[in-house]
Design a protein around this nucleic acid. Structure first.
Lengths: 237, 237
DNA sequence: CGTAAAATTGATATTTCTCAATGAGAGTGG
DNA sequence: CCACTCTCATTGAGAAATATCAATTTTACG
């Protein structure tokens, strides 16, 4: 059975010993600001498949992802889904959002976040130019990734899409310290398909083909990049 | 013959009587800031197909588009192109760009821009929280559009893509005051194709089909939305 | 161990692309 | 003013990639 509601942590930890402290937003904060932030954030847990926030909803909170993976997606009225990104620890969700959410977000596996009230956080950053600049930087980086992804969606073949996905995922995990050629893929095939603009069958067939070609090996819960170089060539810069 | 180099205006106009003054960045500036900006910007003209800046180049300038249309695009090594957006008057190019350009930009027809030195502009905004917030807003809006476009590229049919494009283009022109059902399409079919992740032939066929169905009428230099409602249904919100 | 969900595989359908030809319009030089 | 040429758009026929539908197989989980 699933726990229906997100549980709030009883003993609130401090920013000082936060795992994602050197990542994302918090990296730009000085000692005093961190202390201030300590009072604004609350740790919240979500179980797999729980929705953290939904498209079109009024944005009441911002989230700093501490642990786990989230999928960020948009739905068409007829149910077609496009995943616009996967969030990893250190990613800050909400800055890139106006009064209403542009997309939905839910947990892929267990997730822990640091939640901030939107208004409180807005107030916190309002007159801190260095923080505003930092946030700007982060949003601009996201925009750049979005543009890269447009190229992938609009102009690449299924095989190139899958290869690019693996390379991109690897790079992101590497930045979190997990620098190995065996990639965990906590999201399902359908998620990958909806991220790459493909069907689940095409994703599955492409994985199989890459494995037959000796480029990757499909392992439980992920993939091993047998021939990294070749994956990179397929991803075609 | 084409004029090979962009011509710099001899008599520099003032922000006060700038056509795009109430749009984009400048809308957020007060009297004094505008006067300051007057000294930073230089008007520059480009002729059709001229490149304003190129992908990977070091970003030395920001541009406020005054007149005309620009296409913003990324190229794959093998020449495939994805247009990530079209810029219209009032759009500010550069904020969303880091040290190196994320994409190339060139003129679709004649273009006039107000050019700023990157360093001077950065200095200008550095300690103006209200301006930083405004820029944030604009980048976030762009990111939202990018995410919408991902849905289009990844999950929509050719017909839906074309219909969405027409609706989106109409909305943008309407914001500039041109609120009619006859849309000028200054960009060519290949540009539309590269924006929508289609081939030129598919775009052409889709236009023809929409015309046969009595939804649009293809006119020289553009398209008339005969049955706006139906276009909107096809665009499928 | 049994059941449900997820992934894979196969056969076929459909969409979109590719290649090739034709047609229309804009600008040029005679 | 009229051929001429060039580019761009359209159209057609066939090919290819990916989607769809259906059936297994595998994995995860109680």
């Amino acid at each position: 059975m699933k726990i229906p509601f997100a549980a709030s942590e009883p003993n609130q930890p401090h920013c000082d010993d936060c795992a994602v402290r050197p990542l994302g937003i918090c990296a730009a904060l000085d000692r005093g600001e961190l202390r201030e932030l300590d009072h604004l954030g609350r740790h919240v847990h979500f179980t797999s498949h729980e929705t953290v926030f939904a498209q079109e909803e009024l944005t009441t909170s911002f989230y700093n992802l501490l642990e786990g993976v989230m999928r960020l997606y948009k739905l068409l009225p007829d149910g077609r889904r496009q995943i616009v990104g996967f969030a990893l620890p250190g990613d800050f969700l909400g800055i890139a959002i106006s009064a209403r959410n542009n997309f939905s977000a839910d947990a892929v596996g267990a997730v822990a976040v640091c939640r901030f009230s939107r208004t409180a956080f807005m107030q916190f950053i309002a007159d801190k130019p260095h923080l505003l600049r930092r946030i700007n930087e982060l949003v601009i980086r996201e925009l750049g990734q979005a543009q890269d992804h447009m190229v992938l969606l609009g102009r690449r073949s299924a095989e190139e899409k899958v290869a690019s996905f693996l390379i991109g995922w690897r790079v992101r995990l590497a930045r979190l310290g997990d620098a190995t050629n065996t990639l965990p893929l906590p999201m399902g095939r359908q998620d990958i398909a909806d991220f790459l603009g493909l069907t689940i069958e095409t994703v599955s067939r492409t994985f199989t083909k890459l494995e037959r070609d000796g480029v990757i090996e499909i392992v439980p819960g992920g993939v091993r990049l047998v021939d990294l170089e070749r994956v990179e060539v397929l991803a075609a810069a």
